[in-house]
Design a protein around this nucleic acid. Structure first.
Length: 814
RNA sequence: GCAGAUGUGGCGGAAUUGGUAGACGCACAGGACUUAAAAUCCUGCGGUGGUUAAACACCGUGCCGGUUCGAUUCCGGCCAUCUGCACCA
């Protein structure tokens, strides 16, 4: 049958009946855990992005299976989250209903793609049998001191009476009603990811990940070595600042506090109170990105308070300013306008003194602000020291008076996991008037998310409105108690799902330790680079925390990481419904079949790069399929009708060389997720076979074997199509169960090779040599080539450069 | 703003460690087949100049400069575009 959607259906049915993709944990071959980031069931249909992520990486998994690995390739759904809840608010359809519907539709489509998942291992994070264990992990972290509660700001819309996600805040206003948002503090749960900052940083070197992603994580962790220094205020408070430049301490002319910090109230004088409060109110309306923008004019106000510089006793004013952030460093900054750009700008604007304490080491005139390191001046006994020495010496001296210490600071913040939302895993905590915070006993898990809840925004967490959910008895004292009303960030669910897959149906534990140690860590993880920082760092943290708690024996969840690119709309912009530039895969699949579509995605784009959608080439891919069908037919006819030879002449040798070259390159390319070039090589082989079939005499055996190889090489890339053609070749086994071919070095060798000859680096002509001849032999042939001799005669030759087997360059003087 | 990428023909994209720039394909043009068209097959295809045709010459990987016998690749400086920035997943 000619390739179409019908062929897809035929083989999907066959695969299902014969259980072709069943994973056997004790199966033959080295285990290989091949995982794609699971998807959020955002709609009833797979979009182009899903196809681009899952199609090619399924081909990779199939390739590995054919190479003899015992491939574990599961799929699931990251099902909790904001969009389902928003959709529910808009339409009244319950998140659980819409999510379940979407999951079953998406699963059906993934099956239609022909992906080789073993669905017996599916996980759905919104199901109690999964989130029970998410809650269990929360309890384990809590008991280990890795989950704690503290105040933190949220985006608050006063008119909708609800907390907003950052993405719901548009230019400082609420996306729903347009009113201005404010930052408001709430008591919320955190995971202590900062405890692992150093290990998360160090272990990056162990990982086979893209360097750019490692860099993102390095910057996200943001390690800096510096000092903590204590300034006492004139009214007896202590201000501990963090600085990497303790050497400039003598140049401090004021101190700045983050507007939100607790200390502000304590240092502000009656006279400045009004001004300070107004400023704090204003700052609460800005996002962090807006506040940090260097091009934004610095603002701030004087609190009326003063602090004493511990190194020289200077009395310096205390200001508040929004360029200081509460959650970086200590939230307090010593300002050295002479040696910091932001401080300089601020001091200039507010006419604060500027005191120079570092000069350039090479004695050159310095222009302020001078932010480089140098030699100290105006610093009393520290004059003449280098910045580096002074930094240490000053801190050590202060340490004796308990006013300073060397310390390491990380930009990484603890992970805020509380969400004031309905559609998430309830946090398994109970509040008792007598006993305080009480964790839900493990045997009482899961804390079920109630179905019947009013989740429309009206100022309260949705769960708070369910009396049935909220009211409970204290597990400790048996008295009346209430539940935590917040749910967990969906990143918590996705930070451990790769551990659940291998033991997805376990109802006694989150996962069996032996099984998880056998199947995890993930060998190849495929997903978008938008996850470079958050998901990928949270998952690493979770693995390390669970290791320390004794539940698993490895340090890192994902050994190798590959990012697929993004398919943009035809206009070059990110696809979005609002821009009206979305492209739906469905019509293409109905028209051409899933393999043509998958092959086109692989051939038409660089997998790691992506690019704007363009449907032009899809027709061409369909034609390639037709050519291969014709090739298979023709080869049968040719074998019957042409005169036969047993000779292995030049033509045969050439065909065999192309075949082996194709095997070699396709193996390398697929291994490296370079599907576009892998398919190009496959096309070359099919062209070579067609050429060979035009010969008068045909070596039947070589032709047949080469056609078989062509189809086997195609099998991971176009699985249904390859099965169909394989069957046409009279085979009964699945082509998917064939061994991936090996390169024959013998058949690969031989032939001619063109060595380019250059004149001053510019190509003149090529000299043809035997590929197998030695360096000396080649050199001999090149040197004696007429054209080379002529070049020597006609030019003032300085020297010849020969890179064996690569290039021959004649350098001449003009 | 900070951070991370990317930039190659008309288009998608190739090019090992610094070694023939443009593989493979699309589009286009010419030809074969056909009453004709489609499909298919064959040939050509970076630009400019040159020639009856070739040969050949020069230019060419965002822009400017550097290192090198030789740079799409390495270095410095610009420009443009895309992505992420901690409550989207």
């Amino acid at each position: 049958m000619e390739y179409s959607k019908k062929v897809d259906e035929k083989w999907q049915k066959e695969w299902k009946e014969k259980n072709a993709y069943k994973f056997d944990i004790n199966g033959k071959g080295e285990k290989l855990y091949c995982l794609e980031m699971f998807s959020y069931p955002s709609g009833a249909k797979l979009h182009l992005g899903h196809w681009f992520n899952y199609g090619p990486s399924d081909s990779f998994a199939r390739f590995k299976k054919m190479q003899g690995y015992n491939v574990f390739h599961p799929m699931g759904f990251d099902a909790f989250g904001l969009p389902a809840e928003n959709y529910a608010i808009k339409t009244g359809i319950h998140p659980e209903d819409s999510t379940k519907k979407n999951i079953s539709a998406m699963r059906k489509q993934l099956e239609e793609m022909g992906a080789s998942y073993d669905w017996d291992y599916m996980v759905e994070t919104c199901m109690p049998d999964y989130y029970k264990w998410t809650q269990w992990i929360f309890l384990k972290l809590y008991k280990a001191g890795l989950a704690y509660k503290k105040e933190a700001p949220v985006n608050w819309c006063d008119s909708c009476k609800t907390v907003l996600a950052n993405e719901q805040v548009i230019n400082g206003t609420c996306e729903r009603c347009g009113s201005e948002i404010k930052r408001k503090k709430l008591a919320q749960w955190f995971f202590k990811i900062t405890d692992y900052a150093e290990e998360l940083l160090q272990d990056l070197s162990k990982l086979d990940w893209p360097e750019s992603t490692k860099k993102v994580q390095t910057n996200w962790i943001g390690k800096s070595e510096g000092s903590e220094i204590v300034f006492e205020t004139t009214n007896g408070e202590k201000i501990t600042v963090f600085t990497t430049r303790a050497d400039t301490l003598n140049g401090v002319t004021y101190v700045v506090l983050a507007p939100e910090s607790e200390l502000v109230k304590k240092v502000t004088t009656e006279e400045h109170k009004k001004e300070v409060e107004d400023y704090i109110d204003k700052a609460s309306k800005l996002s962090e990105i807006e506040r940090l923008a260097v091009d934004k004019e610095k603002t701030g106000v004087f609190t009326g308070g003063y602090a004493i510089n511990p190194v020289n006793g200077d009395k310096v004013p205390i200001w508040i300013a929004d360029y200081v952030l509460e959650d970086y460093g200590t939230g307090y900054v010593m300002a050295v306008p002479a040696h910091d750009e932001r401080d300089y700008e601020f001091a200039s604007k507010y006419k604060l003194p500027i005191k120079e304490v570092v000069k350039s080491a090479d004695g050159e005139e310095t222009k302020l602000p001078f932010i480089e390191k140098g030699i100290l001046v105006n610093s009393g006994k520290y004059d003449g020291l280098s910045s580096e020495d002074a930094r240490r010496k000053i801190t050590e001296d202060l340490e004796k008076e308990e006013k300073g210490r060397l310390t390491t600071n990380y930009r990484l913040k603890d992970w805020l996991v509380s969400r004031q939302r309905y559609w998430g895993a309830p946090i398994p905590i109970i509040y008792c008037d007598k006993c305080g915070i009480v964790p839900v006993p493990e045997e009482d898990l899961p804390v079920l998310l109630p179905y019947d809840v009013e989740f429309k925004p009206d100022g309260e967490s949705p769960l708070k409105k369910s009396k049935e959910f909220m009211n409970c008895t204290c597990p400790k004292c048996g008295g009346k108690a209430t539940r935590e009303a917040d749910t967990l960030d969906t990143f918590v669910c996705s930070s451990w799902y790769y551990l659940r897959y291998p033991d997805a149906k376990n109802d006694k534990e989150a996962f069996n330790k032996d099984i998880v140690n056998k199947i995890d860590p993930v060998d190849v993880y495929v997903g978008g680079k938008e996850h470079a920082a958050m998901h990928l760092i949270y998952a690493r943290f979770m693995t390390k925390a669970l290791r320390d708690l004794g539940y698993l024996d490895f340090d890192e969840p994902f050994k190798r990481l590959v990012h697929q690119g993004m398919i943009l709309g035809p206009d070059g912009n990110k696809m979005s419904k609002s821009k009206g530039n979305t492209v739906s895969p469905e019509e293409y699949i109905d028209e051409y079949g899933s393999d043509v579509f998958r092959m086109y995605l692989m051939f038409g784009f660089d997998y790691k790069q992506g690019g704007p959608w363009n449907e032009k080439g899809i027709e061409a891919m369909a034609k390639f399929f037709t050519r291969v069908e014709k090739l298979v037919e023709d080869s049968k006819v040719v074998c019957k009708e042409s005169s036969e030879t047993n000779n292995i002449g030049d033509k045969e040798k050439e065909l065999l060389r192309t075949k082996n070259q194709t095997i070699k390159l396709m193996t390398e390319n697929i291994e490296d997720f370079r599907f576009n070039t892998a398919i190009a090589r496959n096309m070359e082989l099919s062209n070579a076979i067609n050429d060979y079939m035009k010969e008068k005499e045909i070596n039947k055996e070589i032709l047949e074997k080469t056609v078989e190889t062509l189809i086997i090489l195609l099998a991971p890339l176009a699985p249904h199509f390859a099965e169909e053609e394989w069957q046409k070749l009279g085979k009964e086994e699945f082509v998917y169960n064939q061994k991936w071919p090996q390169v024959s070095e013998k058949e690969l060798s031989g032939g001619k090779k063109d060595i380019p000859v250059q004149l001053n680096g510019k190509l003149k002509f090529c000299v043809s040599v035997d590929a197998e001849s030695s360096t000396e032999e080649m050199l001999e042939i090149i040197k004696n080539d007429e054209r080379v001799i002529k070049l020597h005669e006609n030019n003032n030759v300085v020297k010849d450069i020969y890179v064996p087997g690569r290039i021959y360059n004649i350098v001449v003087k003009k």
